[in-house]
């Protein structure tokens, strides 16, 4: 049963989602497209939200397509793989290893298939924009770099991927590369999923040869922990804050806004707020996905 099913604000029973993606203030000034992407879908009582950040640098010149294909692949595979009927808590514990093992591989494979299809329909040799980018790459980094991308076109589409899956029995978090999945648990604890992965200058990416091995994934039955609020954000968002403490404060802000003004209000204003955040902060593209548990709005809920 859907509580809301409008254009942007969707949900499954007990959950409501919204989100936005904006072109970075710097990107606007430099004539670059928004290289982030966001997508969410509900099907048979399951909800998936995916957020992706295209790498953006010269050699990843098709990353704005890579990120869109990433969220599409994520949503398709998640909804298909999880559609197996009722899972008991006992089954969930037994299936964890298999999910960790297979799901990253299948999502990465699906993304690679989509990239291959796009590339075959849009060969670099027949695309003037791609040719110009390759020429620039050759001028700046040398012919070897150009050849490397031409021989391994998948690199041009490089992007990160964050996913959250909500079913009747559990939540599942998936992270490849930078960006953040922040979770407010029922006991009030705020967590950053796979926080230890956030260090280091280079991000993991879907375009890496062993990308599925780099994925951090966790399936948490509601019997162990029920999330009340989940925030998915590309790194342009956290980089706009002075510190993690300020970043965590937005969790409270988004909950307060939803409680006092409603999700529609957030939905109407989110893009505008994010544009302001980008201008005053990182200057990067920002994408934000918000997943609310209805319990937050239940007056009897403690």
């Amino acid at each position: 049963m859907f509580v809301q099913d409008e254009d942007k604000v969707k949900g499954i029973k007990d959950w409501i989602v919204t989100g936005a993606s904006i072109k970075g203030a710097n990107h606007g000034r430099r004539g670059l497209p928004n290289q982030d992407a966001i997508k969410w879908e509900t099907e048979n009582g399951n909800l998936v939200m995916a957020v992706s950040d295209g790498h953006g640098s010269l050699k990843h010149f098709r990353s704005e397509i890579g990120s869109k294909l990433a969220v599409k692949a994520a949503v398709e595979i998640m909804l298909e793989e999880v559609d197996v009927g009722n899972l008991t808590d006992d089954m969930l514990n037994k299936i964890k290893t298999r999910v960790k093992d297979k799901l990253p591989q299948r999502i990465v494979n699906q993304w690679r298939d989509k990239v291959k299809e796009h590339y075959q329909n849009n060969l670099f040799s027949l695309d003037r924009v791609a040719q110009a980018k390759l020429m620039k790459l050759e001028e700046e980094k040398g012919i070897a770099k150009r050849k490397k991308i031409e021989d391994n076109y998948i690199k041009a589409y490089g992007a990160t991927l964050l996913i959250v899956l909500i079913t009747e029995k559990f939540s599942l978090y998936f992270q490849l590369g930078d960006g953040n999945i922040s979770i407010l648990a029922e006991d009030g604890k705020k967590m950053l999923f796979a926080a230890e992965e956030q260090f280091g200058p280079a991000t993991n990416s879907l375009c890496m040869s062993e990308a599925s091995n780099k994925v951090k994934i966790s399936l948490i039955p509601f019997s162990e922990e029920l999330p009340l609020f989940i925030l998915l954000s590309t790194d342009g968002y956290i980089n706009s804050f002075r510190n993690d403490k300020d970043y965590f404060k937005v969790i409270d802000d988004f909950i307060d806004l939803a409680k006092h003004h409603g999700i529609e209000y957030i939905n109407e204003n989110l893009s505008q707020w994010l544009e302001k955040t980008s201008q005053q902060g990182s200057g990067d593209d920002i994408t934000l996905g918000l997943v609310y548990n209805q319990n937050l709005f239940d007056e009897d809920y403690k």
């Binding site: 298909e80 793989e81 999880v82 559609d83 197996v84 899972l87 089954m91 037994k94 299936i95 298999r98 999910v99 297979k102 799901l103 299948r106």
Partner: peptide, 9 residues
């Protein structure tokens, strides 16, 4: 077999 399909495994 789908990832979550335990009986099929």
């Amino acid at each position: 077999i789908r990832c979550f399909d335990l009986p099929a495994m």
